[in-house]
Amino acid sequence: MKKLLSLSLAVVLVASIFAGCAKKDGKDDTATTSKSDATYVILEEALAEEEYSVGFRKDDVALCQAFEKTLAEMKDDGKFAKIDKKWFGEEVNILDKTKIKADATDGSLEKVKTAGKFVLGLDASFPPMGFTDNDDTIVGYDIDLAREVCKRLGVELVLQAIDWTANDQELKSGNIDCIWNGFTTNPKRQAALCMSTPYLENSQVVVTLAGSNIKTLADLAGKTLTIQGASTAGDALDSKPDVKSGLKGGAAIEVDDNVLAMFDLKAGGSDAVLMDKVVAEYYVTNPNAGK
């Protein structure tokens, strides 16, 4: 019996490899209407309001300010708005030029300029901020911004995919020069890092499959909720203890990235995903993203 079981599993494994290939070829994409065509719904109630910043090492203030200054210039000459429109269809940035200072005297900017390259750390599975497209190239809103800033500063942009949970270790150890990947600013990060002036608004929202009976946060009681481990979604959930304690198991399920979380949701492994609104909206308009 066990033999049969393991045997059939092996067969199924192989079958699915072929099935996977077929999907890639796009041969049967239109043939069936089933879960793969399910669209996502974002709950109106958000768990927390947030803002995105770029995170630099605590001591690299000069570098941070140079980036802020360049972003401000981009806002002035309309380049920022152009990138906004490319990814979101409208001008969305909230960069406040009045908050930008230029008083730092440390050598961090010179160091990057001497090296001639600037290493940006990201988890590369965070659409539309920074993600890997079908051509295996890392693209995204943040990437376009960073590319333009680097061009203006005359340094080469190097993209370094990292394990998101270890992002601050990567930064502290000097493997990367900044974390720029829909990086939410909060007091803890402001204390540990040099966080730039926020450039985009975000909120933590709950995403479900269309047709789900979860309509409000209260409906999450007894359901499973998946989040990206080590993301601010966890903090947002902690800020709503009544929602958290109502979840099945009293905690969210953590996976490595949002792509896997959405995959899990689509597969039926969980009832909802708590994630950045910016990302969630991207999934709603691109339901087959991350396949």
């Binding site: 481990g229 080590a230 966890g234 903090d235 399920i253 953590e254 969980s270």
Partner: peptide, 23 residues
């Protein structure tokens, strides 16, 4: 096992490493 969301010790360590900025 944490790959598919099983909350075992390594997943917890990863999360709290990131929350607390400490290894």
């Amino acid at each position: 096992a944490q790959t598919i969301g099983v909350m075992e010790i390594f997943r917890l360590a990863k999360s709290s490493t990131s929350t607390n900025s400490s290894i």
